[in-house]
Computed example of a mutant assay.
Amino acid sequence: MFQNITMKQSIYHAFIQVMEQNMTTAHASGRLSDGREFLKLVSVTQVTKAAHINRRTFYTYFHDIYDLFDHLEDYYVSGLSQSFHGWEDQDDSMKAVIQSIGDAVDYMSENRRGIKLVSTIDTLVFPNLIQKEITDAINVTGGLFNRGKLGADPTKDREWNLNYTIIFLTSGFAWVCYHWMLHPDDFPKDKLKEEFASTFMGAYKLIQSDQLLTSDQMQAYFREHSTVHAKVDAESHCDSQIS
């Protein structure tokens, strides 16, 4: 079993290496592809040569390049999904979920080349997975986003605010992660984890507050503060003119 896993890992590594090279060449020459069309840029021969194996060995594990990619995608999906778990038996739900998000970021960082490749070819797979995992964590851990705060007979508006805040929060995490997976060196992973924890805690406090702001209240709030800022800017401008 160990031998099989080692050989598959070797083929995965070779596939990622060849795909990176060929995609760079395709972009440089203006010969661009999209989605699974990228897979036409690589051949079994190129992969076997990079992995230092013969074609028979390749076909022992995979039917073709598309089957190889599907296995590679499943490999990273499984690994990322597992990294999200561990919060189920923790006493502090908030701390546990934030920790699991941090573990997921660590996993993505450790496997950045392969995950970046899969994300480039299959745009939705990881955002969908991340959104599902965080939504499951929120729903299962009863202390988070407690619907009891809505009251015994909540209005549709308050239910809407809660449900769509959760959707907004989880989808936001998912697509920030997706962008970061494509550009992992643009933003330090520790800073990313801090931003996630801060945003998650802020949304949690908003939902747990006794009063959920309606859209009208939100608009009034922004109008008020926009007026205040405009007044301050005008006064500052006048002071600078006088001085």
Score class of each variant (00 low, 15 high):
156 K>G: 02
176 V>R: 03
241 Q>W: 15
136 D>N: 15
2 F>C: 04
125 V>C: 13
49 K>D: 11
159 E>W: 05
148 G>K: 10
17 Q>I: 11
22 N>Y: 02
48 T>D: 01
199 T>P: 00
34 D>C: 10
143 G>A: 05
219 Q>G: 08
91 D>S: 13
221 Y>K: 09
4 N>A: 14
177 C>I: 13
71 H>F: 14
205 K>E: 13
223 R>T: 04
197 A>M: 00
23 M>R: 08
103 D>L: 13
40 K>Q: 14
41 L>A: 10
27 H>P: 09
87 W>T: 06
132 K>F: 09
207 I>S: 07
39 L>H: 11
112 R>I: 06
206 L>T: 12
205 K>C: 12
153 D>A: 12
83 S>D: 01
101 I>T: 02
164 Y>P: 01
26 A>R: 03
35 G>E: 06
107 Y>E: 04
217 Q>P: 11
130 I>E: 05
110 E>L: 14
122 D>I: 05
2 F>I: 10
183 H>W: 09
111 N>C: 08
179 H>K: 13
17 Q>M: 14
50 A>N: 08
75 Y>E: 14
14 A>L: 08
186 D>T: 08
19 M>G: 05
118 V>H: 06
228 V>D: 10
115 I>S: 01
79 G>R: 06
145 F>K: 03
74 D>L: 11
39 L>F: 07
113 R>T: 02
212 L>N: 04
32 L>W: 07
36 R>V: 13
167 I>S: 08
19 M>T: 07
198 S>L: 06
89 D>P: 03
188 P>Q: 06
4 N>V: 12
42 V>Q: 02
107 Y>I: 06
70 D>G: 12
105 V>L: 04
71 H>S: 15
70 D>F: 11
94 M>A: 13
39 L>K: 05
50 A>Q: 15
148 G>N: 14
184 P>H: 07
98 I>H: 00
85 H>I: 13
23 M>E: 14
74 D>V: 06
206 L>Q: 12
234 A>V: 01
107 Y>Q: 03
22 N>W: 02
77 V>K: 05
149 K>H: 15
112 R>H: 09
188 P>W: 04
85 H>Q: 15
87 W>C: 07
234 A>W: 08
35 G>T: 06
49 K>M: 11
65 I>D: 02
176 V>C: 11
84 F>D: 02
76 Y>Q: 05
71 H>A: 15
208 Q>K: 12
160 W>V: 03
88 E>Y: 09
217 Q>S: 12
39 L>G: 11
65 I>R: 04
218 M>S: 12
32 L>V: 13
166 I>L: 07
24 T>H: 08
160 W>D: 10
237 H>I: 04
91 D>K: 13
226 S>E: 13
198 S>W: 03
130 I>T: 10
214 T>W: 04
